[in-house]
């Protein structure tokens, strides 16, 4: 479906754009790079950011429910920034059931902070003719600031809700459940268009079926460069970032931790003795 058709059909079509971020596999051992500004990531395997897979599932469910209740078609579009890794996570999103993908790929996109990412996302959403809902994961497993989605909402001029653990379409827009501290949940009604940042545990992301994987190969994937987004070189990458990375380092381990080694039985025995005689807690 063309952006034009999507835009013109938006009165009756629920269009949801989901941001998918490729991040190093959480099981990876990480090392700081030569100039100490990031990790050595060339050799790492990348996966879709965990919270983003929940966001993708939430988008698909939202559209399926809308389609079922109003007999209208919903459309899920997946969006990612980066080179081959981004294309791979987009294909996963397509295999899960998204209708089409937007790949923001340009050598100039390397580096950058949440503000840069949010600007690029907002530009891409606008260029694609807008949407009813933009979803992101609550935070990424790389920068982990949890603010990109909220910033994108501001740049788009949309409402938002962060840390969402439940969402439904209602007459007025969306009804979302938001997680607060201490086990509190608040329920909000939001006008669309809006941005939601999706918390882990909101759903069980579906696995791509073989048929889904095959179908994904035929789905549309647009690739947009910096120029396509109408952004200057100084707006993107580390040049566009509002914070300069001074250093990435392995956190110092607090010296108070005592590591107990040996076979499982030896380590267990050492631990129990320490707890009894040194810490005196059992």
């Amino acid at each position: 479906m063309s952006p034009g058709a999507a835009a013109s059909g938006r009165d009756t079509l629920m269009k949801v754009i989901v941001c998918l971020r490729p991040v190093p596999d959480p099981a990876s051992r990480l090392f700081v790079n030569e100039d100490r500004t990031w990790i050595k990531d060339a050799e790492l395997s990348f996966v879709t950011n965990e919270a983003d897979t929940h966001a993708c599932e939430a988008a698909l469910e939202l559209c399926e429910r809308v389609s079922a209740s109003r007999s209208e078609a919903g459309e899920v579009v997946v969006l990612s920034i980066g080179r081959d890794r981004a294309a791979r996570v987009l294909r996963e999103g397509l295999a899960m059931g998204a209708a089409r993908a937007i790949h923001l790929a340009d050598d100039d996109f390397e580096g950058g902070d949440e503000y840069v990412r949010a600007r690029m996302i907002a530009r891409a959403v606008e260029k694609d003719g807008g949407a009813d809902v933009l979803l992101t994961g609550v935070q990424s497993d790389d920068l982990g600031g949890g603010v990109t989605g909220v910033m994108a909402a501001e740049l788009l001029g949309w409402a938002h809700a962060s840390v969402v653990v439940g969402v439904n379409a209602v007459e007025a827009g969306l009804r979302a459940r938001r997680e607060l501290e201490g086990g509190l949940i608040e329920t909000l009604e939001l006008a669309t268009p809006c941005v939601l940042t999706i918390q882990l545990g909101i759903n069980q992301p579906r696995y791509a079926t073989l048929r889904g994987i095959m179908a994904a190969k035929k789905k549309e994937m647009k690739t947009w460069s910096r120029g396509d987004l109408g952004m200057a070189a100084g707006d993107v990458g580390s040049e566009g970032a509002l914070c300069q990375v001074t250093e990435v380092r392995v956190p110092e381990r607090d010296h108070r931790v005592q590591m107990l080694s040996g076979s499982p039985a030896e380590a267990a025995a050492r631990l129990v003795e320490k707890l009894r005689l040194e810490a005196k807690v059992i």
Binding site: P24, P26, L30, V32, I39, D113, D141, D142, L143, G144, C243, Q244, V245, T246, E247, V248, R249, V250, P251
Partner: peptide, 11 residues
């Protein structure tokens, strides 16, 4: 950053 496996200093 990286789920607290790394610390990043920013200016």
């Amino acid at each position: 950053v990286f789920n607290a496996k790394m610390h990043m200093r920013v200016t």
